[in-house]
Design a protein around this nucleic acid. Structure first.
Lengths: 161, 161, 161, 161
DNA sequence: TTTT
DNA sequence: TTTT
């Protein structure tokens, strides 16, 4: 249940190959930056303007694995998620990073009809990344785990915002 | 025109009375923080969990004036806008703040059936804030101005994220 | 998984008390009509115009039960669902009705701060409607059932559209 | 202004080349059917299921002209619009058709990276359809006209729903 | 009637 | 850092 609505819908292009990691509980996490572009004609100068906005998107669970397999730098994608701001510290200074979280409650769609290197249709999946060993002996299946975690390091600290 | 989609939809409660300012071109800007809450049952402990997310919302133009007049601390509102991250500096360190921009292309709805102090229906408007004098002699009507500006100080620098 | 996106977001007022029924498998179904209103100034005549749009919304599963308990005529609600058109026949003539389906993949939020008859906050739940007997002996729990069914009679045949 | 929210977001494939017409006031209208598909695994039988939903989308104004020029049968597109049900009569019987209206307040994005017959990028525009003569002498530019009309014949009467 |  |  929710008291409130927190929904983000984006269509854009991926800035780099996704980084996929596995949490100690076996859940996959994938990070991606997504660019959305707006262009408009300035009313004063009449000049065409463009602004690109970069978004940090974090995928969890099964959807993160799909991202790791099929999404590449340049991919066009639709995502539906929710806004989440997390706090982190650097040199004793608090910083805040806002991300779009896409987990079981969200959605992801690849919109590339014909990917860069492919013939027709979707790109062949990339070789599955190795899951960490310590996850294997875990008695609980990964799917039963919580699909998202409020606090974790989704990006290196030296990445802006 | 846009190449891409950048859409945010929120329903939540306002954290404080809005701050309304006027840009040199006469355009109004209103800032508000909006709280959305999620609650869920933790699968491991079975405990009810709650997380509140705070969002920074910036309104421009006519919609900012409506916000200044009718929105108050505690108001429940629907907004539709777009994500925008701006860069600012403090003590020589770059910081980034992500906001939801609501301008002519977005939407705002007050969802309070009966506001705190009111009888029935919408609250009476607050006294109109004084527009700056320098805007009057401007030859171009404010409505003709661009409805949003990428870079400006929408919040004081010492406010987190 | 989905190839495509089919999403409807509405905020409006409920036209009548919801009708709740139970499918043979024990799943609840609730029907509601929801009114959304637009008003605009006609560019030719300068006159203020208003148009109310009525939507047929069908809820399934747990969310249908919540609707049956808390939603009443006049309630303001937010819903997120998907469009679905079903075919039915009358006097040998095929007709089509488009509805917004809200099930596990959708969302519903009551936006009434203070309902008509209540004191403060949400209305007290209405007495739970009796579930059909034949559902009891069913060996599969209702929650395991599919949350929505493509074809069923969600409204009487003589209701328009 | 609006009291309520009425929003539809679709991503799907176009069922046929768009039909573009011009209203007496010079405004363009384009009709398109859009297919969205869902697939899921049936919980009882374990079988993969698929359901395609067909949507009637009506574009008005400048966006209708873009549709007429660039959209073709099979095109993948994103649209944002609003639900509207109109009444029509056949053999003295009232019928209702629900459409998604996309006008100035909505959005359209072509998602075909590389269209069927093309080399790279967007398809070359189709030859502009002839505007009716009676629109030429009109002193008001088409863009000044109302962007949508509640009642009109957007499809032939013998098309279902 | 589309698409994978 | 993407894309057109």
């Amino acid at each position: 249940m929710a008291r409130g609505v927190n929904k983000v819908i984006l269509i854009g292009n991926v800035g780099g190959d996704p980084e996929v990691r596995y949490l100690p509980n076996g859940n996959a996490v994938a990070n991606v930056t997504l660019a959305t572009s707006d262009s408009w004609k300035d009313k004063q100068t009449g000049q065409q303007q463009e602004r690109t906005e970069w978004h940090r998107v974090v995928f969890f669970g099964r959807i993160a694995e799909v991202v790791g397999e099929y999404v590449r730098k340049g991919s066009k994608m639709y995502i539906e998620g929710r806004l989440q701001t997390r706090e982190w510290e650097k040199d004793g200074v608090k910083r805040y990073t806002t991300e779009i979280v896409v987990d079981m409650g969200g959605q992801m769609q690849l919109l590339d009809g014909r990917p860069q290197g492919g013939e027709q249709g979707m790109a062949p999946p990339r070789p599955q990344q190795q899951r960490p060993q310590q996850q294997q002996p875990s008695p609980q299946p990964a799917q039963q785990q919580p699909q998202s975690m409020p606090d974790y390091d989704s990006f290196d600290d030296d990445i802006p915002f």
